[in-house]
């Protein structure tokens, strides 16, 4: 199957290829990480990344920015939404808008103080349960270590929206983590 790849590039030349290889290929892990957290499935994530990389290769000439990772992640995200759901990313916003989920933070409960002890599996479940507009900002921020500006560019949102979504994502995660496994732990003590 890799043997077929050499016919894909429509207008290849070696410098362009070398640039693509040097700038875009190092972002493959980042692309897959985002795709995997959006798709929540290995096979789907591979399809998304494969398609996104082909698009990136096709449109590489239009990349003039300084950060190939941000550029590629935006393509991955768009690819995911076009491949996986027929609904455009924009329509997912309504259910989440500001009034629907006001910040309810009653301050730290004793349970949340043991957050550090949360295992990877529990965190993964909690992350996967987040709605995708919240999940993508938290993945971009915490796993990809993107700045707000970069997240805003990737998700085509305003920085203010990024900030409030990130706040809501963390509050939801905190609530999830405080409720589920910690009950058990407290009874143990």
């Amino acid at each position: 199957m890799p043997a077929d790849l050499h016919v894909i590039s429509p207008n290849p030349d070696s410098v362009r290829s070398a640039r693509f290889e040097a700038l875009v290929l190092p972002c493959l892990d980042a692309a897959y990480n985002l795709a995997r957290w959006l798709a929540r499935d290995n096979a789907d994530a591979q399809d998304v990344v494969q398609e996104a990389m082909l698009r990136a290769l096709r449109y590489f000439d239009s990349f003039h920015g300084s950060d190939a990772r941000v550029w590629l992640l935006a393509i991955v995200r768009n690819t995911f939404y076009t491949l996986r759901t027929k609904t455009p990313p924009g329509s997912l916003h309504e259910s989440l808008d500001e009034d629907a989920h006001t910040l309810v933070d009653g301050g730290p409960s004793p349970e949340t103080l043991t957050l550090l002890a949360v295992d990877v599996g529990t965190l993964q479940l909690a992350l996967e349960r987040l709605p995708s507009p919240l999940r993508e900002v938290i993945v971009l921020r915490e796993l990809e270590e993107c700045s707000y500006k970069e997240i805003a560019a990737i998700t085509e949102q305003k920085i203010g929206t990024v900030m409030s979504r990130l706040a809501r994502a963390r509050e939801r995660l905190k609530a999830e983590l405080a409720h589920h496994p910690k009950e058990v732990r407290r009874h143990d003590v």
């Binding site: 692309a31 550090l116 995660l173």
Partner: peptide
Amino acid sequence: DVYGRLRKALAQPGLYRRAPDAL
């Protein structure tokens, strides 16, 4: 403090999904 801990928990490498070898 709590959100700082949450950030640390999310920084665990086990959560990062690296591209599979096939890809």
